[in-house]
Amino acid sequence: MNILKKLKQIRHKEPGIREFCIQTIRFKKFLENARALLDLFEDGREKALGEYIFDRHYVVTLIDSVIERLGMMVYDGCVLVPESGEKLYTTYDTHKRTARNLIDFSGIVKKAVSPGDVTPETSKTVDQEYQLLSEALQWFNGKDAPLDSTVMAFMKQIFLKVIQGHGSSEVIKNRSLFENSCGKIPDMGIYLIDLWKDQLALPEGNSSINDFNSIPLNHLLMDAGGKDLKAHPNPDWIAAVGEYQLSLNSLRADFQFHLVTLATGDADADFIFIFADDAAILDTLLPPGFHTENTGYGQFAWNLGISEKTIEDSLMIIGRNLFN
């Protein structure tokens, strides 16, 4: 059996919970890589719009950075959804070739040999550096680019594959895994896992939020669950938490929902990311300020570069709407 098959299978020897936690951390890394790509696009855009003076080296570096980051995202995607791996790499290789072509063939200009030939006559022509940057930006995220040829389009594809893969994953379907190995918040219907706890240690049965020192979780559930305090026999949610992070997933077969957040106080790293397979739900759920992206499969929403307080407030609103 080769690696791929092994990845697809649930190993029964090792606790599936640990697998789940690591994949949760891997997914967060995946999101970080995606964010880094968006930052790169933005950087290029800023330079183009701001009439900056830069050299070809800057643009080549930018293109290289995008390829590298994209590769990291693709790799993470393959670890999360092994069955899509081959297709992802095929598309990635296409993008690599595009990048290569851009660098090799665009904007190459032989230096003028004749001395004194540096008058502003040439200001009518576009600087080759700007030409290259503009082509690169087209490739990154151009509105007029041919469908599906942009990096952004590829990113969306990868996201979709990952989300779809998650929805159909056996881990999610195999609830008994959580039943026997996790803490629970019975009145909220949430299974709870500490992302960093050594998973081979036996669980403690019913817990409360206070057992988990997780700031995002606390904010999510602050206003939630007022009236209905009956214990849910089959919790519908799994929350994997750390001190500053939270990954909340729906366990229902008919409703796919993911929320991932990091709230450390470092605006460059913090974010909230949400996916729901029903766009309508997100409209009722989200506070204003989120970017959203609709796809046939569902809706993505995210907010980046925001303060700790904004994240915490957003979580309270979302929690209130989600658990009532």
Partner: peptide, 12 residues
């Protein structure tokens, strides 16, 4: 600067 872009954009 041996890159023309510098002269072109800075001079004005």
């Amino acid at each position: 600067d041996d890159e023309p872009i510098v002269g072109r954009r800075l001079k004005p």
